[in-house]
Amino acid sequence: MKPANTKTVLKRLGKVFAKQTAFSGRKMNAFQCLVGTVLSARTRDENTEKASAALFAFYPTAEKLARAPLKRIEKLIHNTGFYHVKARHVKQLAQMLLRDYGGKVPDIMEELLKLPGVGRKVAGCVLVYAFRTPAIPVDVHVFRVGKRLGWHEEKTPEKAETALMKLIPKGNWIDVNNLLVLHGQNTCLPRNPKCGECVLNDICPSAFRNNI
């Protein structure tokens, strides 16, 4: 079956999730958006939000986080996966921001990728949610939903990102992550997707085929 039309998908999901955001970092400044997204790797959304809130209650800026004791950071974010590594990364990136960027978060993909713990998904989220710059961050939801919609057949997030950027007009990139994440969290679930309730079930090539 042919892929679902990107314009139709985004328009319908935009109506379903009007004014909703899947990313708590959207309410934060660029620094907190960056750190919060680093903490989110391989971690449930609710645990990321708790860890971010705990960390920023004590260290809300790059200046404060750069000086924070590593053990203290680990304790505050212990409910995230790989918290030892993440604690080191967020402390190091805070120090690097102060040393190389005047304490400011860069708004260019190539510069963001130089920061410790920052890959393309993290960098893309910062661009989209902190700076409203077009990008398509590919997390587990975007990867899964995009594949079910027939938008890519890739095996890695990096290749999926490339495929999605080729398929979707750049003017729509800014909404892709938010809408597909919300759809993936609420309807297009990893197991037992709610195809009967889905507003895309008449155009999705995977509808009612279960767990594709």
Rank of each mutant, 00 (worst) to 15 (best):
K2R: 14
N5W: 01
N5I: 09
L10I: 07
K11F: 13
R12K: 15
A18N: 13
A18T: 14
K19Q: 14
A22H: 04
G25P: 07
N29Y: 05
Q32A: 08
C33N: 15
C33M: 14
C33E: 12
V35E: 09
G36A: 11
V38P: 02
R44K: 15
T48K: 15
E49F: 09
K50Q: 06
A51V: 05
A53V: 08
A54H: 02
L55G: 10
L55E: 06
Y59L: 07
P60R: 13
A62R: 04
A68G: 04
A68R: 02
I73E: 06
E74G: 03
L76Y: 11
N79M: 14
Y83N: 09
A87H: 04
V90S: 09
A94D: 10
Q95P: 05
L97R: 02
L98K: 05
D100L: 12
G102C: 09
G103Q: 11
P106L: 06
I108Y: 06
E111R: 15
L112K: 08
L113C: 12
V118M: 04
R120I: 00
R120M: 00
V122G: 03
V122R: 06
V122L: 06
G124N: 01
V126N: 04
V128Y: 00
A130E: 07
P134H: 07
V138A: 01
D139C: 12
V142K: 05
R144G: 03
K147M: 12
L149D: 11
E154N: 09
E154Y: 06
E154Q: 15
K155Q: 12
K155G: 14
A160L: 04
T162S: 05
A163L: 00
A163M: 01
M165A: 09
K166Q: 13
P169T: 11
N172G: 00
I174Y: 06
N178E: 04
L179A: 08
L180G: 00
L182Y: 13
L182G: 12
G184P: 10
L189Y: 01
P193C: 03
C198S: 10
V199F: 06
I203L: 11
F208G: 01
R209M: 12
N211K: 14
